[in-house]
């Protein structure tokens, strides 16, 4: 099975633990090269985060376990890239 290289997740998480902490624990996972978390909606107690993770060999179950351990829940997987080459989304005539 091809190795998972990029994951973009839509996550609902509590304000604490903060995104700095969550980004660091995700970055500590084996196979992860980098993490980006951006907040696109914020509420009184929770926030919606777009979590982008890249690496050579991402383990989806471990990533979800860390997110859940920190109180978050994955609402959707918005983008996935796998294989030897990282392929970006391409604009087509239909777009």
């Amino acid at each position: 099975m091809g190795n998972l290289r990029r994951l973009v997740l839509d996550v609902l998480k509590p304000l604490d633990p903060s995104i700095e902490e969550l980004a660091q624990v995700l970055a500590d996972l084996d196979g992860v090269d980098g993490v980006n978390i951006s907040i696109y909606e914020i509420d009184r107690r929770v926030e919606n985060a777009k979590i982008t993770i890249e690496g050579q060999h991402l383990i989806y179950e471990d990533i979800v376990a860390v997110i859940e351990e920190n109180g978050g829940s994955v609402h959707s997987i918005d983008e996935v890239a796998a294989g030897r080459v990282l392929i970006e989304d391409v604009d087509t005539a239909q777009d």
Binding site: L12, P14, D16, P17, V46, E69, G71, S73
Partner: peptide, 11 residues
Amino acid sequence: ISLTDLGSTKI
């Protein structure tokens, strides 16, 4: 609010 069971989390 988060519609999640947080019982076994860090929180």
